[in-house]
């Protein structure tokens, strides 16, 4: 029997012989348990909590309420406000990061004088703590003591309510996001640019293609796969923006700059409404998954062409 089992494994005939070896469970279970405890348990626990009326303060025994938490959220104006704020910040910030990042990467790839110094300098924002950056930005954009308004005053222009007006506050949040995360785009696009073969550009040059035509005809389509990945990573990351908003505006004025994560934080750690927060987290997860699937489905034909 033992011999037969071994033979089956060797032949790879559906692994029937291996399947009959019970010893494999001994090796599989520890890993499975670790995954279960670390990843699956909290996920399942919060999924269960999302269907319960579950508050820590005042403490009450959890009670199953079905989809009520989800219903409450979907009908709440504050939730939709947070969705719109998050989407606005994410899409505008990522679009700007991509455009600026791509342009800077192309410039750095062109071996401008001092390009090495620029490369390092441009990466610094990404390496800094978002909290530290947000604190500095809060001072810079402060309406009374901030240097930006000082500058406007110097030129005889009126002071602007950078952090106290909803539109300006969103603008500041987007600016900070762009400032901090454009280097990430630069880094990846630059890496992509360095993998492009030189001879195809020479072929294009011999064909009389202008630099602009070379960019749109060769560089951009060939970097489409890496661009798709960069944008995807940045969008997923930006959806989770929390620290910057927390420090800079605290979601205000009112809830005009409140993002989904900040809303979840307020519900979970201010009101200790675990059920509602869990439901919110799951709605957030569903949104990100739906977005990801749609994004990849839309890009698929283009990506296949570039592969």
């Amino acid at each position: 029997m033992r011999y037969e089992a071994k033979k089956d494994c060797g032949r790879g005939a559906g692994g029937k012989g291996c399947m009959r070896e019970p010893i494999k469970y001994v090796f599989i279970w520890p890993a499975f348990l670790v995954v279960l405890i670390i990843a699956l348990f909290p996920l399942i626990y919060s999924l269960v909590a999302s269907f319960q009326a579950f508050r820590l303060v005042p403490p009450r025994p959890p009670r199953y309420i079905g989809f009520e938490n989800y219903g409450n959220l979907i009908t709440a104006a504050r939730f939709w406000g947070a969705v719109i704020n998050t989407a606005t910040i994410v899409f505008i910030a990522v679009a700007l990061q991509y455009i600026i990042g791509f342009a800077v990467a192309v410039a750095l790839h062109a071996k401008v004088p001092g390009e090495r110094l620029f490369r390092v300098t441009f990466l610094i924002p990404m390496l800094m703590s978002p909290i530290a950056i947000s604190l500095i930005m809060r001072m810079i954009f402060n309406s009374t003591i901030g240097p930006v308004d000082d500058l406007l005053t110097f030129f005889g222009l009126p002071n602007l309510p950078f952090l106290t007006n909803p539109t300006w506050a969103k603008g500041v949040l987007i600016t900070v996001e762009v400032w901090q995360w454009t280097p990430f785009v630069i880094l990846l696009i630059l890496a992509g640019l360095q993998t492009l073969p030189r001879d195809i550009y020479e072929a294009a040059e011999i064909e009389s293609a202008t630099p602009w035509q070379q960019f749109w005809g060769i560089t951009f389509p060939m970097l489409l796969p890496i661009s798709a990945a960069v944008i995807f990573i940045r969008i997923i990351e930006s959806f989770k923006v929390m620290d910057t908003v927390f420090v800079l505006t605290g979601g205000g004025p009112g809830t005009s700059t409140e993002t989904l994560t900040l809303f979840a934080y307020q519900e979970g750690f201010k009101k200790f409404n675990i059920g509602q927060t869990s439901a919110l987290s799951f709605l957030f997860l569903i949104t990100v998954i739906v977005f990801g699937v749609v994004y990849l489905a839309l890009l698929r034909p283009y990506l296949e062409r570039s592969r």
Binding site: P197, D199, I200, E202, A203, A204, I206, E207, S208, A209, T210, Q213, G217, I218, P221, M222, L224, R305, S306
Partner: peptide, 25 residues
């Protein structure tokens, strides 16, 4: 010019590769 490594545009079809020069002109 015909290059050692062909220097074909990998994201274009054969038709687009051959026609690229004429298109940009």
């Amino acid at each position: 010019m015909v290059f050692q490594n062909y220097a074909l545009y990998p994201h274009m079809t054969v038709r687009q590769n051959i026609g690229y020069g004429m298109k940009v002109r």
